[in-house]
Design a binder for these strands. Structure first.
Length: 233
DNA sequence: CCATTAATTTAGT
DNA sequence: ACTAAATTAATGG
């Protein structure tokens, strides 16, 4: 932390993690957000939001990485996507229903901001540019997800694992060398295969020199081949 | 505060 | 399902 001084008031003006949407608000509207929001910190592994909970506040992910998932009966969970910083959590649920449909948990230490849902709604209604930005981000989000799910259903395990690696490399980290933010089990939950298959394929990729694998750290060696596997899956 | 060990979680077969 | 390895928590000095 920066200092022991407790800041009693949020100011969004100088927030360096401001969203694309909030950036188009005028200063009066920004003050409305500031006085109706609350910053909070979460440690890695903590649940940010539970499915089924009421949407009393919008949650904006300022920093860190989170997973969006649903928990099926019993233990099985399915990860829908990885959420990067500077995105709002649960927007589809906001406009579609009164409860959240998905759960979110922190994959890294996260800084989040709660924003009163009524104030958020009124901003959507009164500021078209704000609404537009929100619309853009939710639409992009759902296109991405639908595409991923459609492709996945046609792919074999090799293609799915290749997809996951490319997903992290291109979308999440934007580099060829990264650390997986979670366990093999969770990787398996993301692509809908068993944990055993996920590890098996990872090791296979390693032995064939497509990736370099050390614990959770992955380096893509042969990007072309990986993309090919992803497509022909 | 640090070091050792016990317990839990994760990875690979 | 089982074992080994690694990570985290607990204990005692």
């Amino acid at each position: 932390m920066v200092s022991g001084v407790i800041k009693t008031e949020n100011t969004c003006h100088d927030c360096k993690d401001i969203s694309c949407a909030a950036a188009v608000l005028n200063s009066k509207q920004l003050e409305l957000v500031a006085s109706n929001s609350q910053e909070s910190f979460l440690k890695k592994g903590e649940v940010i939001l539970h499915e089924g909970s009421l949407t009393s506040h919008i949650i904006y992910l300022k920093t860190g990485l989170a997973k969006e998932y649903i928990k099926h009966s019993g233990e099985k969970e399915q990860i829908l996507q990885i959420v990067k910083k500077h995105t709002y959590l649960g927007l589809p649920s906001l406009f579609g229903d009164r409860i959240n449909h998905y759960s979110y948990a922190a994959l890294e230490d996260c800084k989040i901001c709660y924003i009163d849902i009524n104030k958020f709604n009124s901003l959507v209604r009164e500021n078209g540019n704000f609404a537009y930005e929100i619309l853009v981000s939710t639409s992009r989000d759902s296109l991405n997800n639908i595409n991923r799910f459609l492709h996945r259903s046609q792919k074999k395990i090799f293609g799915r694992v290749a997809d996951a690696i490319l997903y992290f490399s291109k979308i999440i980290y934007e580099t060829n060398q990264f650390d997986l933010p979670f366990s093999r089990q969770e990787l398996a939950d993301l692509i809908g295969v068993s944990r055993e298959s996920a590890t098996r394929v990872l090791l296979k990729f390693k032995s064939e020199g497509i990736i370099d694998l050390k614990g959770r750290s992955i380096t893509i060696v042969n990007m072309n081949l990986l993309e090919q596997i992803s497509q022909t899956g």
